[in-house]
Design a protein around this nucleic acid. Structure first.
Lengths: 265, 265
DNA sequence: ATATAAAGTATTGCAATACACTACTAATAT
DNA sequence: ATATTAGTAGTGTATTGCAATACTTTATAT
């Protein structure tokens, strides 16, 4: 009654009369299903989403009825249904970048016979739109939507290289930089040095910064306005490709592929 | 005021106090984005979803703020964002069927060098969880979540073959059976005959029923309880594989792959 | 075996949220 | 220039979603 009727928590989503918070909560539930566990019980969903019991109950129920969640009736635990693939397929089939890239990516894979990916920025991660496995092996990571950290990967560094340096630096500093392998570079300045090289040489190499035995290389894809919107990356094995091989043999092919995918401005 | 306060429209979702209809509407908007058009304006969304203007406005706005829809500010049209790949990736990475199948599917592709797919039932369609392209060409249809009709495809017929005949018949009759190619079988009895053969011979062949020049073969994958939960399908070219080739060379390999993926009861 | 705790399900009155309606503005098409 | 269509903003109201609570079932410990 002291006149302070105004809420203090007007950070973002409040005071937005068009925002429907039920939708937000429903997606919080969907997003609770990550890659670590397959099925979740109600309490686990409550823990992961921050919703209360009633809300968790109502949104799991609703998503179940809509067919986006499966429910195992004996364990009463929920899991994602294959229905979530619907919108993913819609996206992939109509996205111009993906469609333009596919034949070039396939051809590059044929030439090098290594894993090839097309990735873009997604928050503080790189998301692969097309992760093409090599012909021999099949990786569990070879599905669209696969994400890897931004700061220690070729695709991430390439995409940062074509943004304003201070912007790139800010993004890197927001990353939780962990030493994934002994050779992972985590120092901001060191990463910035790598990034600065990219703009000069037109590609980026990382040497087992994310997986022992891998040496990777990526080059930028540009849109019509000259923005780097994606990168083509090749994941090679160190005992098949030396650093010199990467520079002299792999780099020209990857750069040429990325250029071919780029929209000619 | 005549006492008829009760609603008449209690078909399904009403009288369900736990069902949150805002979530339903939000997903209606997401589902409006199919594979025919990339971007949609507000009115198109209204037409496809049946929502009114306010609702369409609020849910596009909400989905945009959540990052699931992109908005082109010049055309003010919406499109799916690559964020929809997140849950697809989560599903594919943790699904036991997919994980068990991948190495076998890859090996089968290596042996035959044709397109191989792992599909399951999804309403009146077959949905491919893993559509593996052949090594030479790349199809736009080679993304997870790709759907094909049930009634005229090997996977569909295989999956129906291991259900009760009357159930299978009912499903077929619910399909809108169009003659996709001149040789597409659309008659219910004729399809039932094909389906009955499947249970005897353990596989299904279709001869250019969905694409001229293709001859396809599929075999069932069973879960621990003996239910056919998926099928392995091989899409071959007619000028590379005769019907006899399919029966003698392809069928044993596909059946063996499907059996290897099946959970041993 | 029995008790105890934990997880999941069902119900209800209340009020805040999402609703439809309307009015307004901007962009095409004629 | 004018008409028409598409998209945006605002508002009072009641319907919808909310939290609290009670109840049932399953799991765990004693």
């Amino acid at each position: 009654m002291d006149g302070s009727m105004e809420m203090v928590k007007n950070t973002e989503k409040d005071d937005d009369r068009l925002f429907v918070s039920s939708v937000d909560k429903a997606f919080k539930v969907l997003e609770a299903f990550g890659t670590d566990r397959r099925d979740l019980g109600l309490v686990e969903i409550i823990e992961r989403t921050g919703l209360n019991k009633s809300a968790a109950q109502r949104f799991t129920h609703t998503l179940h009825r809509l067919g986006y969640l499966e429910k195992d009736m004996s364990s009463r635990r929920y899991m994602l249904s294959h229905r979530v693939l619907e919108s993913a397929n819609s996206f992939l089939r109509v996205d111009p970048l993906v469609n333009k890239a596919i034949p070039h990516i396939v051809e590059l894979r044929r030439q090098l016979n290594v894993r090839i990916g097309l990735g873009c920025l997604h928050g503080l991660n790189v998301m692969y739109l097309i992760p093409l496995q090599s012909n021999q092996a099949a990786f569990r990571t070879a599905h669209p939507g696969f994400q890897i950290p931004l700061y220690c990967t070729t695709t991430g560094r390439v995409l940062l290289a074509y943004r304003k340096p201070e912007e790139a630096r800010a993004i890197i500093e927001r990353c939780e930089r962990t030493k994934i392998t002994p050779t992972t570079i985590t120092d901001t300045d060191a990463i910035m040095t790598e990034i600065n090289n990219v703009r000069n040489q037109g590609y980026c190499i990382t040497d087992q910064e994310i997986r022992i035995g891998d040496i990777n290389l990526a080059a930028p894809v540009f849109d019509g306005r000259g923005n780097a919107i994606a990168a083509v990356a090749a994941a090679c094995l160190r005992n098949e490709f030396s650093r010199k091989d990467m520079e002299t043999k792999v780099a020209p092919l990857v750069i040429e592929t990325a250029r071919a995918i780029s929209t000619d401005g």
